[in-house]
Design a binder for these strands. Structure first.
Lengths: 208, 208
DNA sequence: CATATTACTGAACCTCAGTCAATAACGCTA
DNA sequence: TAGCGTTATTGACTGAGGTTCAGTAATATG
């Protein structure tokens, strides 16, 4: 076996031994970063290991397989998304809604490529992967409504029924698509105008 | 080199030789069928070849690579979707819209697994793949509006502006999600009720 | 300093996409 | 019907990437 570095890699054969928590953290962080550049399944074990400066084998020590690693990365990305888009409270329900949507939109603007990768990965992925994303989306919409009091909900035309849930879910899907589209190319549409329209679209849909 | 079959392979050397058109047709048809059962990238060249009773190599003769084959399959599936959901014409715009959506919904009911696979494949796929799907979706929505006259468009609150296009696109996305969700689990919501709500959601959104 | 623990490596293995020279089925002509 | 050219079809080969596992070396513990 060659002692010297064959072609690349750290010249020193010194391994870096970290605590399991730190290592796991590093790998997840790296994974979410890479998600901004590449598609989820373009993050090969090989690339990941090379970037992290570890052997491929170690990834299998921490995450059972590639699939599990992907799940962990998406879970992490969703958590960040939910955490960052924190709500504020305002008296007018529609205004409140618009502000919440605005926070969401700002996040997408900041992390466009990563966000798009996340959405696409979730949409095209397997059951488990989608479940994680769906849960995150529900957390977002639920939170929007939690802040709005009962009176506000009434003002938005919202009540709790299967039909309402179906439509609100549809409205959330519309949000995603329109926001991605707008961030990609605003076509002269003003941010505030868009937010207002998206907010008013909710009663527009459920009251129709 | 041995002339005889070395170890395995078909005992009978009988190949089935078809015309390029028939073979291509067979492979595409098989591909769209398999799409009902598996995810797009679960349709490996190996499985496909085995199901078709041909060698792997032949697939590369007809389609340059796996990617191209996938594109061809999706193109085919989208064509079917657009072709089958043909519109009828009715005087009332909203009624017309509901009927068109109904045709679309019926198609989804009939081909649920295949349709879901198609949508997921398109959503998660690469640029080119999404372009094909987007084109199909635009054909659907465009057609809906073509049948509706200028007066009808006005009644729906539609005009031609960037904002309108953005919102209509969002409405279409909402349609997809809600329909898939409903077909998956109707939760006691009546078909006609749903269609009416989805149709009225359009003016509800654009007039909001 | 000796020993146990375990984070970590590296090489072998398997699956599957993609390549290509060889082969055989079919149409055509004599 | 036999021969011949065309080309649809094959199958073995290559390479990339995921997965396994027996072994190796840091660190903790006595």
């Amino acid at each position: 076996m060659g002692h010297m570095s064959t072609t690349s890699g750290p010249a020193t054969g010194s391994r870096i031994r970290m605590s399991p928590e730190s290592r796991r953290e590093q790998l997840l962080e790296l994974g979410t970063q890479l998600l901004s550049t590449r598609t989820l399944d373009e993050i090969s074990i090989e690339v990941l290991a090379e970037e992290a400066g570890i052997s491929r084998g170690l990834l299998y020590h921490y995450f059972g397989n590639k699939q599990e690693f992907h799940l962990a990365v998406v879970r992490r990305a969703v958590e960040q998304l939910v955490a960052i888009t924190a709500p504020r409270d305002i008296e007018d329900p529609l205004e409140q809604l618009a502000v919440s949507i605005g926070a969401y939109l700002d996040y997408v603007v900041e992390n466009y490529t990563g966000y798009v990768s996340l959405v696409r990965a979730a949409a095209g992925g397997n059951e488990e992967l989608r479940a994680i994303y769906e849960e995150g989306r529900r957390a977002l919409t639920d939170r929007i409504f939690e802040v709005t009091g009962p009176a506000g909900l009434d003002a938005l035309g919202l009540s709790d029924s299967p039909t309402m849930r179906l439509l609100v879910n549809g409205w959330a899907a519309m949000l995603e698509v329109v926001i991605i589209d707008w961030v990609h190319d605003p076509r002269g549409i003003a941010r505030e105008d868009l937010l207002g329209r998206l907010a008013r679209a909710l009663p527009g849909i459920v009251l129709a």
